[in-house]
Simulated scan of single mutants.
Amino acid sequence: MKNTLASPRVDLGLFFLRLTGSLLLLYVHGLPKVFHFSEELTRIEDPFGFGPYMSLIPAIIAEVICPLFIIVGVWTRLACLPIIAVLLVAMLVVHPGWSIAEGQFGWLLLIIFTTLALTGPGQWRLQPKATERLT
């Protein structure tokens, strides 16, 4: 039997997680990369040797475009994947020597977006047409 009282709270919790996690990622990491694009090209790490441009564009997609989809609850699970990938590269490849304390923001973001990838957006979201649903 479904608990009808728990469902609205779970949906509220998922909405809060989507909104706050996405806004935090967008504000702290995404928007500075867009607004200071040229400067970011000179200091972004290039862990795979593809060049700074090819390192910055995926980061911008993951930190600007994907959070916007997650905020509105459209293609949420799919939008979490680039974020998770960028965070894993940052935490395990770019900054492998960081302690848990030094990397706590990255690990917390990884927890937030992995949770959303597992749960989906909840009911508080924009509803795409049935043929467009990927969540």
Score class of each variant (00 low, 15 high):
Gly13Asn: 13
Pro96Met: 02
Ser55Met: 01
Phe113Pro: 09
Leu118Met: 12
Leu126Ala: 09
Gly21Val: 13
Pro82Ala: 00
Arg125Lys: 15
Leu24Gly: 14
Thr20Val: 15
Leu17Phe: 11
Val94Pro: 06
Val93Leu: 02
Ala90Asn: 11
Thr20Cys: 12
Ser38Arg: 12
Gly122Leu: 10
Val94Cys: 02
Val89Phe: 03
Cys66Ser: 15
Gly120Glu: 06
Leu78Val: 13
Pro82Trp: 01
Pro32Phe: 03
Met54Asn: 10
Ile44Trp: 04
Phe48Pro: 04
Val93Tyr: 05
His29Ser: 13
Met91Tyr: 12
Leu25Ser: 07
Pro121Ser: 05
Pro47Leu: 00
Gln123Ala: 13
Glu45Cys: 01
Pro96Ser: 05
Pro32Val: 08
Met54Cys: 02
Gly122Ser: 08
Leu56Glu: 07
Ser22Asn: 12
Gly21Met: 09
Pro52Tyr: 00
Leu14Gln: 09
Ser22Val: 11
Pro67Asn: 10
Asp11Ile: 12
Thr114Ile: 13
Arg43Gln: 10
Phe105Leu: 15
Thr42Val: 10
Gly73Arg: 12
Ile44Gln: 04
Pro32Tyr: 02
Gly103Thr: 11
Leu126Glu: 09
Asp11Gln: 08
Ile61Tyr: 08
Ile65Cys: 13
Val74His: 05
Thr114Ser: 15
His95Pro: 06
Gln127Phe: 12
Leu12Ala: 15
Met91Phe: 10
Pro128Tyr: 05
Leu109Tyr: 07
Leu26Glu: 04
Leu12His: 12
Phe113Ile: 09
Glu102Trp: 02
Arg77Thr: 02
Gly97Tyr: 00
Leu56Met: 05
Phe69Ile: 13
Ile71Arg: 08
Leu19Asn: 10
Ser99Phe: 08
Leu87Phe: 07
Trp98Gly: 13
Thr119Trp: 04
Val94Phe: 06
Tyr53Ser: 01
Ile60Glu: 09
Ala117Lys: 06
Pro96Asn: 08
Asp46Gly: 04
Ile61Cys: 07
Arg18Gly: 11
Ile100Cys: 00
Ile100Gly: 00
Ser38Ala: 14
Leu23Asp: 09
Leu41Trp: 07
Pro96Trp: 05
Cys80Phe: 04
Ile71Thr: 14
Asp46Val: 08
Gly120Lys: 04
Leu126Trp: 14
Arg43Ile: 13
Tyr27Glu: 06
Cys80Asp: 03
Val93Cys: 00
Ile57Gly: 04
Glu39Asp: 14
Ser22Met: 08
Phe37Val: 10
Thr115Trp: 03
Ala79Lys: 00
Gly73Val: 13
Leu88Glu: 08
Trp124His: 13
Arg43His: 14
Glu39Ile: 03
Glu45Val: 10
Glu102Pro: 03
Ser99Trp: 05
Gly51Cys: 04
Thr20His: 02
Ala62Thr: 09
Phe113Val: 11
Pro128Leu: 07
Leu81Asn: 00
Gly120Trp: 05
Gln123Asn: 14
Leu68Pro: 08
Asp46Phe: 02
Pro121Ala: 05
Thr20Arg: 00
Gly103Ile: 07
Leu31Ile: 15
Gly120Val: 07
Phe16Met: 14
Ser55Ile: 04
Leu31His: 03
Val74Cys: 06
Leu92Phe: 14
Phe105Gly: 12
His95Tyr: 10
Glu45His: 13
